[in-house]
Design a protein around this nucleic acid. Sequence first.
RNA 1: UGGCCUAUGGUGUAACUGGCAACACAUUGGUUUUUGGUACCAAAGAGUCUAGGUUCGAUCCCUAGUGGGCCAACCA
Length: 669
Amino acid sequence: MSEETKSLNFIEHIIEEDLANGLSKDKLRFRFPPEPNGYLHIGHTKAIGISFGLGETYGAPVNLRFDDTNPAKEEQEYVDAIKRDIAWLGYKWENELYSSDYFQKLYDWAIQMIKDGKAYVDSQSSEVIAKQKGTPTQVGTNGPYRNRSVEENLDLFQGMKAGEFPAGTHILRAKIDMEDPNMLMRDPMMYRIMYANHHRTGDEWCIYPMYDWTHGESDYLEQISHSLCSLEFKPHRKLYDWFKEHVYAYSKDKLPLPPKQREFARLNLSYTIMSKRKLLRLVEDGVVTGWDDPRMPTISGLRRRGYTPNSIRQFIEKVGVAKRENVIDVSLLEFCIREDLNKSANRVMAVLDPIKVVITNYPEDKEEWLEAENNQEDDSAGFRKVPFSREIYIEKEDFKEEAGNKFFRLKLGGEVRLKNAYIIKANSVVKDDKGEVTEIHCTYDEDTSKKVKGTLHWVSIRHAISVEVREYDRLFSHEAPDSNKEKSFMEFINPNSLKVRTGYLEPSLAEVKVGEQFQFQRLGYFNVDDDSKPDALVFNKTVGLRDSWAKQKPKPQNNNQNKNKQQSQQQRSAISVIQQFGKKYTNLPEEKQLKVKADIQELSKSVSYDELEPLFGTAVKKAGTRIAVMISLKILLKNGLERNNTINEFIEKALEDKNEILVTEASEI
RNA sequence: UGGCCUAUGGUGUAACUGGCAACACAUUGGUUUUUGGUACCAAAGAGUCUAGGUUCGAUCCCUAGUGGGCCAACCA
C-alpha cells in the first residue's frame, strides 16, 4: 500500500509493522528531548530530522520536550537557543514541554513504587554504592538498606523531599536485581537530593529525578508512540520497559498507550567533535568566539557560516538512518550547501588577493557600467551594472609571467576574458626591487566574441569597496579528533582555522544586510556575518566552489590508495574468486552463466591442483561450487593434469547428481 | 555472569516475502559553458567479515567464531 518503492529505514519499517498490527495512525506521536545544557549541533539535527521528519511523513504531532532534570547544568539561555535552532531548521513542534512539568506526577508514582516494595531509600555513600554495583563482568551485591520497611522508606523519602537531609545522604533506588547482567538493572537510582536552583521550578524541589526514571515516564505521560534515541541508550531499554510496566499498571485507564523506545546510530562527522561537553570547552577556552562561531558544528555556527536550513535537511536525508557506527565525510555536507546555494545565491565579483592590472589603451578618466547577469541558474534573478575602468584588480593567482598551456589564465603575451567585460592581453609587468610583480600592463579589445580559454573575475579599483573577509579551515587537523585514547582532542586543534583578510568587492554590494548570501565568482559562497556594520562589512566564506583545477596539482595520497587497492586485488587468489562465483552460479540467468563460466575458465589457468582438490569434498548440497570446481578441473586436465582416483570419484559423484548443469559439465570430461 | 548492538565499494544508505547487489557523495574521463562553477554523459570501484548449516537458490534465516561499538556518573 505504500507509495512507489521509496525504501524505508528500519524505524519506518517498525512503524509500518505496528500500523499493520492494529496501531491506529492517529496514535502516532513523537518527541525530541534535548537537555538544555548546551547548543544543538549537527549531530542533533539527525535526531531532529528523524523525529520531526517522521511527524511530517505520518502527519503526527511531535513534542519538543526539554529534559531538565539536572539544574546544575541547565540554563534558560540554552532553552532559547534550542528553540531558535529548531524553528530555524523549519520544524514545528506540537507542544513545548518540560520534564520538570512532571516532577509532581513522578513523585506520586515514586511513592506508589515504595508502597509496592519496588523502591527503597539507600543511605550509603556514592562510593560504597558504586562498589556494590559490581562491574560488567562481576555481579553486584545487595546493600544493607535494601530491605527497609515500607514505612521507613516512605518516611525517609518524604523527608528527602521536605529538605530534611543534606545532599548526598540518601537516594531513592528501584529494587530490581543486583545480579542482573545489565548493570542498569542493578537497583538504579531514581532520585537524588540536590539543593540547586532550577531554571523553571526555582527552589520548589530539592530532590530531582534521574534520567531513567524521568524519560520513559515523560514519554508515557505524553503518550509518545515511538521514542527514538541514539544507540548508547540501548542498554537503558530494559529499564525503560521495567519502569514503564509499573506506571502502566498505575495509570492504564487514563494513559492507554505504552511507548516504545528504539535506537539508531548517532551521526559522526569527520574532522569534527560532537560532544556538548567538548564544544563547551572550546567556547570556555576561547578557542572559538562562541557557540555560534562559524567554525563550530553547532546549528547556530552553521547558520552564521552560511549554511541554509534546506542544505542541512538535505544532508540529514542523504545520511540515512541505521544502527551501525558511521563516520560521514564532511564533503557530503559541503555538497549539500553548494547544491542549495548554486540555485539561490547571486553571483558577484570580488577579489581577495589582489594584483593591479593597468589597461594602457583605456582612457584614464573613462568609466563604463557594464551589464552583468545575477544568476544564470535563476531566470528571475535579473541583471546589475558593474563599473569598468583603466585600473582593475585581479587575483594574484590568476597571473603568471610564464606558464604552460594547461594554465588558462593570464600570462605575458596571452589573452583572457574579463567576466562581463572585455578581452585583455598582458604585455608587460612592473616589478618592485624584490622582483615581485606589482602591476600588469595590458591592452584591451572591445571585440568580445573571440574565443579564449580563460575567464577571470575582477573589480575596478576606483569603485571597489573593501571589506573584511573571514575564511575558515577545519577546526581540527585530525579526522577523528576525539577518538585518540592518549591525546586530548585539544591537541588536534588546527591553529590556522581562521584567516582574515581584506577583500575588494564590486560596488553593488555596498548595501548588503547581515545574512545575505552570494557567490563570489570562481571563489565560493560567502555570506554577510553578524559582525557586519554598514560602513565595515564582514563576510564569511561558507564553502569554496568545487575546484577541479586545484586538484590537478598534488595527489600523492591517491596513488597510495590505488596501490593498496591493486595489492588487495592481487592478493585475492584465483581459487577463492572461483569459489565465490560458484556460490552464485546456479542462480544466474543463462547469459550471465556463460560469462561467469568463461571467467572461471580464465582464472583456472592460475590455479594449482593442490588448491582445487580440497574443494572436491564440498557438500553435495552446494551444487554451484561443485560446478565451478568441475569447470576449473576441466581446464586443469586439458592443460596436462593427470587423472587420479580422487578426480574420478569426484566426477562420478557429479554424474549422479540431481543438478542438471553439474551432470552436463561432468559428462563433458 | 558478563550482557547488548553491529559487520555490504573509499564513505554513507538500500536491496520489500530468500531470486542478476542499487542510489548518493567522493574518484577518473568526456561534452557544454563569458565561473577550471553548474548541467549532461560515461568509467572505475563491493560480490555482502570468516567457517559451517537450512534451501533448487542466502546480503537476507540458523549456529559458532572474528572485528568494531556501548554499558560500572547522586549526567542525560
